[in-house]
Each structure stands twice: as structure tokens, then as C-alpha cells.
Design a binder for these strands. Sequence first.
DNA 1: CTGAAAGCGCTTACAG
DNA 2: CTGAAAGCGCTTACAG
Lengths: 338, 338
Amino acid sequence: MKTSTLQDVARVANVSTATVSRTLSNPVVVSESTRRRVADAVKATGYRINHAARNLRTQRAHSVLVLLPDLANPFFSAILEGISRVLARQGYSMLIASTQHVHDSGERLIDYLDDARADGMIVLDGGLETDVVEMLAAASQAERILFACEWVEDANFPSVRCQNRTGTRIAVNHLYGLGHTKIAHITGPIDNVLGQTRKEAFVEELADLGLELKPEWIMTGDFTLAAGCLAAQEWIAMNDRPTAVFCASDQLAMGFIAELSRHDFKVPDHVSVMGFDDIDLAEQFIPPLTSIRQDRMMIGETAAKMLLARIVTPNEENLERATVLPVSLVIRESTSPP
Amino acid sequence: MKTSTLQDVARVANVSTATVSRTLSNPVVVSESTRRRVADAVKATGYRINHAARNLRTQRAHSVLVLLPDLANPFFSAILEGISRVLARQGYSMLIASTQHVHDSGERLIDYLDDARADGMIVLDGGLETDVVEMLAAASQAERILFACEWVEDANFPSVRCQNRTGTRIAVNHLYGLGHTKIAHITGPIDNVLGQTRKEAFVEELADLGLELKPEWIMTGDFTLAAGCLAAQEWIAMNDRPTAVFCASDQLAMGFIAELSRHDFKVPDHVSVMGFDDIDLAEQFIPPLTSIRQDRMMIGETAAKMLLARIVTPNEENLERATVLPVSLVIRESTSPP
DNA sequence: CTGAAAGCGCTTACAG
DNA sequence: CTGAAAGCGCTTACAG
């Protein structure tokens, strides 16, 4: 059973293909009776529009590419969910690829756009190599590239992110408010904008509060569980141990706590620990993790909406370039007075 | 700067569009010198093939839809990574949607295929409603629908899965081998094939070993952390507590352990606990979780390869219908002798 | 080995 | 309000 085409519908309804097309995409310009006849014919034939044909004709792919650094990172799932909802509502499909992947295979990112495979892309990886970023920025399609969560410092792409500085300051103040004065930080990757931003904000806030900050209290990590474990070993080896640790990600905090526990240190009894992101698991961790919550679903939805606006009405000058979404403090059991 | 077309390349190379097309897709049939001229022209014009046009002409979308029950479940990430790799290597894109989504929006799954939006789909959700399954099975495109991880009992779709029964038996024997004779099970969702299969295998294996199984030792769960917490409360309330618990998923095991810990029960001192799946976090959990490892990346790769084989050579009778991938026991610290 | 020509299934000025 | 016709950018028998 072959799928039927506009032609088939037109034949059955006894109208032209133009009329069928109009009835489907812009019914108000068609007379009531014709509309009804076409509707019947569509039902009778089981007609489904052919996306490839429409895409070719309209010069639009009706899909958006989402680029992740790593598909296996659970941090992104809620963001994808948010993106997916908004896109689906507008009849757009969501394509997924990993930046790692694209890099390995030598494929150029911009090809997705030049290719007519996607109308725009949402990049969740601020760590693209410089030459890749330059190529994207120079492309005629650059307006259709949007960064979410992470971003690229020197480029002018539209972006969505959370309050990284504010979140960090809230975290430090939570620990300070509990009575901690020796506060350490496990950073994200040093070459990552989020890692950098949160670290800078951390250093500034400690200075603002007039707190001491020994160099060894800044431990370099990379957002992973493994890095948290290593940092725990550093902490254990310190002569003057901080009583609280602010981690640049929840995974880092979990790794840190896990390793401490193996060495019989208790959280928060021996040290208060908090994370950033408030991923799903934070609540179920032992102990449940105090964290800075980002609304990841909303980040995804906002990113998708901003991008679609640019696709639908290109060259509009009054489109938003950057949106910063609020974070909030979620207090659980991994932090306590010293 | 408009992207150039085959026409442009043909003009520059002084050949017909047919020749350019052939040079690109099947170079061996073109003479050496022509090939060189075309290659130069492609470089000069910066030509990129237009996927929409090729898709329309070849009646193929060059993309595959992956359907998840829930984008936010970290269990799926490695599977997606595996699928994505294989697809990218063959020039296919990966579309993602959630079954929940599709259901809510009233969209029919089969539309993706009828639509020319995708050439096939990989379904990671065995819990589709009966009428949806029937619609899929009846479709002319049914051969291009493949289930992975989960499957539908009464339908004849090709599928990829892990050794669920064997894995369960290995788990029970690991606990039995440690000396446990009172072994409980927290099940997956009762209406889920994996939950059912693992539960049945559990019951059978206990019978084979001649072990007692009190009805209350089968606790109904649903793969989530929350269900694990609830089961922990059941366990705590029991008069005759099992000394070991086999959980149908790692998340279940983590929730179980987390709740026990809140009530000052230690794992494995008071009870041995093991999971199924060996998700990334199992290794970092406190205590590190003994589990049955599924190679999720390989499940994804295998699924993608099987599906592509069906897309490329339809109607082949000798294509594999089902593949069962091996599991293995990973012993960590959540299990010990009673 | 190469080219002329048809056609994939739509949409959209244009004319009436 | 409706239809005839062109055309989006490719691929592929067919003929030479």
C-alpha cells in the first residue's frame, strides 16, 4: 500500500493540488464546501504530507540540531525534554549529535545548516575548538546558532544560561551563614566557561566576605565523579582542612562524598559539601545533597523558543540575544554548621 | 552568500549535472580527468549537497527516529551514543522523541515513517499501548520498526535485548554463593516486559535452588529511586527480613539503600543489595553497587546496524529478527556473606 | 564514459 | 475563491 500524495487527494476531491495544499496550510482562504470535500478526501486516502517534498519546496528542514558534548551525561536530559516539547509543538523535529562525534568524523558543524538538514542549532558545549567557533561565527547562518547553558566568550551568538555568578554567591553565603569560614572550591574544567565563571565568582565572594582563601583550597576538577574523588584525596591530605566545600557540579560533590566515605569521613559531620545543578539524583543521594538548582527544562524550552523565533522571522533586530534564568538554593542534608 | 547547487558545480566543471551527481555518489564510473575537474569545481563553489532534494528524489529520509519513554532517564544515554555512532557513520541523522510526548500530542507514531521524516525507528519502550502497537504492526512499514532493550510480547518486531533471564539467574546465584538463603526481589513495573521477565526468572531460580520464597519477599516496584525507598520501608517492617535483595534496576537498589541508610541500616552489613543494568553511577555509589552489567553502547550499536540493514535491503528474508546480548556480573561492595 | 530529460511531491506567485 | 504552471535540487534509467 503506497502512501497517497496531494495528487491523489486532489483527484478524489475534484479540485487542484493547489487547493488541497491551501486547504491544509491556510484553510481560511478556502470556501467552506471545498474545505469539507478536501477533508473527506484526505480521510479517504489516508493522506500524509511528504516532509521531504515540503522541505525542498519551502527551503526549510523543519528540524533543529542539538549538539551535546557527551550524550551520556544525565545533566542534559531535562534540557532535551524542554527543547523537544517546544519543537514538537511547532512541528519541528529534534536531531541529536555529539560535538565529540562530529569532531572525530571530520564533519563540519555548519554542514548541518548548509545541508538543509537543520534550520538551526542549539549548542550545549562551550568548549568547541577555536577554529570551529570561527567557522560558525563567519557562516551566513550564524544567526541560527544558539548556545545554551554554556557559551563562547568572544563570539556573539545568542544564548541562554542560568545565573552562574549569583548561584555561586548564594552557595558561598549559605555556607558562611551556617558558620563556615574555611571554605574550599572544587572547580569545573579550567578551560570551561562555567568552570571559570563559577570559580571567579567564588573567589570574589570570599574576598567580599573577608574570608581567608588558601591556594590549595581551590581544587581543579572537571564536573565528573572521578574528579570529585581525586579532590577528596587532596582534602584528606591537607593540614588545615576547610570545613566546607562548594563543588562546581553535583557529580563532583557526589564523587567527593563517596571517596570521603570510603575513608570514614562523614558528610556533613566532618565537612559540609554542596553542589551545583540539582540533578535528579541529588535528592536521593546519601546524604541528600544541598545544591543550586537550575531549571533545566526551562533552559531547554527557552532556547528552543528563541531559536524558532529566529528561524521564523530572520533578520529581526529586536530579537533577544541572551537570556539568563534564575537559580535557587535547595538545602538538604549535606551541609550543616561546622 | 547563497549555497551553491549541483548546477553551479556542473557549470564550473563544464559537465552535466548527471556527471557531477555520479562523481559524488559513484566515482568509479567516471573518468579520472572528469573526476578531478568535478572535485575542483566542488571545492571552488563550496558545494554542499541539499539533503531535502536528495531525500525527495531517493524517497529516503536518511534519518532514524529513536523513541524513548522518558528523555530524563540516564539509562538510555549510552544506548543513544551507540545508535548515534552507527548512524553517523552511514550518513544518517538521529531524530529523538518521547513516547509520552507523541501520545500527549495525539500524533501517531507511524506518521514519522509515512511522513518521510524517518526511514525507520528504534523503540526503547515496550509499554506502548495496545492500540498503538497494533497500528504499528499493521503498517506497511512494520519491518522498519525495531525494539531495543524492551519489546512487545505478542508482536513480531525485530528486537535487540540483553540476557534478562540469565542475568537474573547469575544475580541470584551470586547471592546464594555468598551464603544467602533468604533472598528478596524488588520488581520493575509489573506491566513491563523487563520487570515481568526478571521477576519470573527470579522465582524460577529460587525454586531451582530449593530456597524458600515468602510472598512478601517479592516487592513491587517500578525501576525508580522512589520505588526503592518504598520497598526499604516494607523491608524494615518485616518480621522475617531477607538477608539479601535483588533489585530489578540499579536505581531501585540506590533508592532502597538510601532509605535504609536514613534508618541506620547498613549495606551490606545488615542486608546485601544488588541491582541490574550497571549504570555509570553504580560504581560511585556508597557502597559501590554490585550489579548485572548490560553493555548499553553495544545494544545501541547493534540496534542501529540491524535497522539499517533492513532499510538498505528491504524484504530480505535472512535478516536477523532478534539479538540477545550477553550480560556479566560486576561484584562491588554492596553484597557480602550474611 | 557522458548528457538530455523526466520526475520525486510539494508550494506559491500569478491570473482569472 | 480556484487552477495552471513553474520550480525547489537532486538522481537515474535511457540512449548514445
